[in-house]
Simulated assay, not measured.
Amino acid sequence: MKIGFNKGGLTIDGKMFNPLDLSVDGHGIETDGDLPNVEPFECLENLSAARGEGATRLDQIRALRSVLRR
């Protein structure tokens, strides 16, 4: 699996990824709304800061919340 960022957003295996589209056992939900633009390096920065040795569980939760707010 290859994960990438480009100007259009997040890609997985070269295909655009929309986290609001969900499929389980052949049943799915799809959205036609546009995702908000995010700064990929800012997201990666926040997530990588939560992986440090001194990071507490609260720091990790805050990092996830900062990414999910978008």
Rank of each mutant, 00 (worst) to 15 (best):
P40C: 06
G52T: 12
K2P: 05
P19M: 01
G26K: 01
S66E: 12
E30Y: 07
L68D: 09
N37L: 10
D25F: 11
E30S: 08
R65V: 09
H27G: 00
T56R: 02
S48L: 13
L58Y: 14
L47T: 05
R51S: 10
K15V: 11
E53L: 12
P19Y: 05
R65I: 08
F17T: 03
R69G: 07
L22Q: 13
A49M: 05
L58E: 14
I12E: 06
N6C: 06
L44C: 10
P40M: 07
P19I: 00
L10N: 00
G33C: 09
N46K: 11
P19N: 01
L58M: 13
A50T: 02
L68S: 13
D21G: 02
S48T: 15
G14I: 02
I61P: 02
R65L: 15
T56C: 12
Q60P: 03
G28M: 06
L44W: 06
N6W: 04
F41T: 08
A49E: 09
L20W: 12
D13P: 03
D25M: 10
I12Q: 04
I29W: 07
T56S: 15
N6D: 15
N18C: 05
R65D: 14
G54L: 07
R70G: 12
C43F: 13
R57T: 15
N46W: 01
D21F: 04
G8Y: 04
D34L: 01
V67K: 06
I3Y: 11
A50Q: 00
E45P: 03
S66L: 04
H27M: 11
R57H: 15
L35I: 03
L35F: 03
L10Y: 00
V38A: 10
P40E: 08
S66R: 08
A49S: 10
E53M: 10
T11Q: 01
T11C: 01
V38S: 06
E53Q: 11
G8W: 02
D25Q: 09
R69F: 06
F5I: 02
N37F: 09
G54N: 12
V24D: 00
L64K: 15
L10W: 00
A63Q: 01
G4H: 01
E53R: 04
R62C: 12
N37Y: 10
R69L: 04
R70H: 13
S48W: 10
P40A: 07
R69V: 07
S23R: 08
L10D: 00
V24F: 07
T31M: 02
G4Q: 03
V38H: 09
K15Q: 14
R62W: 08
E42N: 10
N18Y: 05
E39D: 15
N37D: 14
E30R: 05
K15F: 11
L64C: 15
G14F: 01
D25W: 07
F17R: 02
S66W: 00
L64F: 15
L35K: 02
K2S: 07
S48I: 07
P36C: 02
L10Q: 04
V24H: 03
E39F: 14
L10F: 05
D32Q: 15
E30V: 04
